[in-house]
Design a protein around this nucleic acid. Structure first.
Lengths: 190, 190
DNA sequence: GCTTGCTATGCAACGAGTTGCATAGCAGGA
DNA sequence: TCCTGCTATGCAACTCGTTGCATAGCAAGC
């Protein structure tokens, strides 16, 4: 279970409300860990009860007040403990692969539009990542020729995770091209 | 929810018992959809009640009897309906990425061994996939120069999914190399 | 005879994730 | 004035997934 830890990391990067966290889980964090607002609110409450995070009521103008959460010492300790915990299996849930193998018992050609849709979604996400990289990491230190800036762990680690997302999207697009070429070999009715 | 559909696909490829399905979920199917035996038994029971699958008691010698499941017409129809259902979000759960971003607030260097362990696991899995490909798909039709064999949807779709696994593992290994190079820039205590 | 290990099936309890719904403040436009 | 839409938080019910445990047949080895 790591939603708690994903929230801790996000709050360490920047304190925020449940609503703001939910929006982050639609953007940066959400690219490698999904969560809905109900899940987030529920877990925030538990984390608060456990003393992992502190709350602060923040009155706002022109919109409802919010509760801003930040990481307490206990939360930092919990994160550290989790980071040092070696166990780490990888569970995969790839519907599309199930569909592709299942298509052999149905109409393979009928999957083409579906796969094309996924491919487009990955192209969109790749473009989004690349735009974010150009905006937030204009030139990495590897390109720098002058005196080195001191390494900033938070930035560099965010960047390497983003590069992972970029690699993933490129891999998926290439693979879906392969899938489309394979599906094209089966006409309707095959 | 697609565990039911993954089971249907697996049973269409070859009928089998809950135990055999659990083993398949440790091998081929399990590479893109994980499930434990408890989950599988529970879902099999429900699918049987819903008339999606048929059971047959198979007495065995030298080992306990088993129940062999096979797909019924209703199950085939349910799979077909799911295959034609366009909606298909992609949910990701990538603990390691959370850990990498979290390492900025702890000791980045402490993650190196963990990342190396993951990298080794991916190398092992890649080797396993490549061996399976060499065994089950000795030369693809793209290499064939003589008269083409008739396309076999089941085999070719299994192969393209396996190629996806191979691409994925290669991508992960490359990315983890990138992660290791990044982590190496932060000594202990940074 | 006892233990270990593999095949084979299953229950019970709990925790995580999903879906539907509800409330409420405030802004902007028809 | 009413409706839409965004911010902001939350409950309830349900399903899915995980963990620990239990049972049982049989084989092989000590």
């Amino acid at each position: 279970m790591a939603l708690e830890h994903a929230i801790l990391v996000s709050l360490l990067e920047k304190p925020g409300s449940g609503y703001e966290l939910a929006r982050r889980f639609e953007r940066s964090i959400g690219y490698f860990w999904t969560a809905t607002h109900q899940q987030i609110y529920r877990v925030l409450k538990r984390m608060e009860n456990d003393g992992w995070i502190d709350v602060r009521d923040v009155p706002q103008q022109g919109r409802p007040d919010k509760k801003e959460y930040s990481v307490a010492d206990l939360g930092r300790a919990a994160l550290s403990s989790w980071l040092h915990d070696p166990i780490e299996p990888e569970s995969v849930r790839h519907d599309l692969a199930v569909k592709i193998r299942g298509a052999a018992f149905d109409d393979p050609a009928a999957l083409i539009r579906e796969v094309e849709r996924h491919r487009q979604a990955h192209r969109d996400r790749l473009a989004h990542y690349l735009a974010g990289e150009a905006r937030d990491f204009p030139r990495s230190e590897a390109d720098a020729t002058g005196p080195q800036a001191p390494p900033d762990a938070e930035r560099e680690l965010q960047h390497v995770v983003l590069r992972g997302g970029i690699r993933y999207e490129r891999m998926m697009i290439d693979w879906l091209d392969d899938v489309l070429a394979t599906l094209a070999r089966f006409g309707p009715g095959h």
